[in-house]
Amino acid sequence: MKLAVKDVLGLEYMTPQDIELILNTAKDMKKIVTGRMKRVNYLQGRTVITLFYENSTRTRVSFELAAKYMGAHAVNVSVGVSSVAKGETLIDTGRTLEAMGADIIVIRHSQAGAPNLLAKNIKASVVNAGDGMHEHPTQALLDMYTMREYFGTLKGLKVAIIGDIYHSRVARSNIFGLTKMGASVKLYAPSTLVPPGIEKLGAKLCSSIEEAVDGCDVVMSLRIQMERQKKALFPSANEYTRFFGLNPERIVNLNDNIILMHPGPVNRGIEMTSNLIDGKNSMINQQVTNGVAVRMALLYLLTGGQSQ
């Protein structure tokens, strides 16, 4: 079992077969994550380096644990404590880490396409852990895993994504992945946060939150960055919540079987009310657990999918 690709740069570039393979493998991995003995030897002797040019807690820790649970050497490199601060180029940093024996480099970068550049210039596998506004493939994979686990299938699922679509790599990866797996995606956002041509990616842009959530199985809310307000992209948190926030009236009263997701971290009370975040329809904590399982599956399949 092995992926058809050397690198995981985005779901745009991944086949439905590979997505299926990762999700199936993640099912077994989840048993390890949720079990008492979190240790297998699938990646024993392998080296996984997380190279983070942007702050992150959950994604970095998730990858690090995924690697460690499978017995790999896991090293974290973050900006400020590396030669990046001395002006070394991304390619040179990548080649240096490769020369030290990295089998997989997991990269997060504030600039779109940075993982593509790295992958083109080194032999080690590159996994995109989020690049600018481009893609966050492992987030979308864990989102799809969570949906599939709950509903049994992705085919025919109706998913609404609500929030800052413009800046969201999570939204882009989910649109690519979900549409490939036969789900449909509806979008709703303040019109200043809708990127041009987004519908050409296969999602439907809605004109009201009611239209977006109507008939949906999944509602995914995206994080709003409050500094966007200064760039005149929306007037205030208060107004955002009024027109774009998720509350029980808008969601659960429509369909009790709906599930709510959020890539985190959540601005409580702004994107979603606390009773929704902590309520029975929320999948936010399951998403985090599934994140480790999906990343284990991905690392396992990238290294050849054999136990040592």
Binding site: G113, G132, R172, P195, P196, G197, I198, K200, L201
Partner: peptide, 13 residues
């Protein structure tokens, strides 16, 4: 350019 490609590539347009 700001348009479909900038949206797809996640680059500012």
């Amino acid at each position: 350019n700001e348009g479909f490609m900038s949206t797809k590539l996640g680059l500012r347009g």
